[in-house]
């Protein structure tokens, strides 16, 4: 890289390229916003789901699990757990029954001592999540 290609030309490509592609990214973001209502299951975004998301966040569930593939890889995917377990009751039952002292030698979810309202909300949140159009991901029910 010598001869006629100068530092100021490189600089101009940098600034021009950065600005152009950032603006393109912003434009695509606008377009994405316009298309999301058909995909993101917002019609089911009830107050209970919102509470469920808060329970999800306040207990750092993402620190072990993935949700739509994002998070930690220590515990199962939960974006489709509603479909895997088949019902809200099964999800609630699982969370409630975790032993406080764990399982000897094995990974075990902590006992979070959630209230009935919180349990119902987190299950509702996971149901809502399972209905987001995720382009057929995950490949199968095991997540």
């Amino acid at each position: 890289m010598s001869g006629s290609f100068t530092k100021s030309m490189a600089r101009n490509i940098f600034y021009g390229g950065a600005v152009f592609f950032f603006l393109l990214f912003v434009a695509l973001t606008f377009d994405t916003h316009g298309r999301l209502p058909d995909r993101d299951n917002r019609q089911n975004l009830t107050e209970k789901v919102v509470l469920g998301k808060k329970v999800w966040e306040n207990n750092d569930c993402i620190g072990c699990h993935t949700l739509l593939g994002e998070g930690a890889y220590f515990a199962p995917e939960l974006g489709n757990v509603y479909k895997r377990f088949g019902s809200k009751e099964a999800i609630i039952g699982f969370i409630k029954s975790r032993p406080a002292e764990g399982v000897p030698g094995r990974r075990s979810m902590p006992q979070f001592n959630l209230s009935d309202e919180e349990l119902d909300a987190i299950a509702e949140f996971l149901k809502y999540t399972s209905e987001i159009n995720s382009a057929n991901w995950p490949p199968n029910i095991q997540g």
Binding site: D60, I62, G105, R106, R107, S108, P110
Partner: peptide, 17 residues
């Protein structure tokens, strides 16, 4: 590999944070 190591004092999510 030892799932209950330091559990429940330092659960995985806390150590990961």
């Amino acid at each position: 590999v030892i799932g209950d190591f330091l559990f429940p004092e330092i659960p995985f999510n806390v150590a990961r944070m």
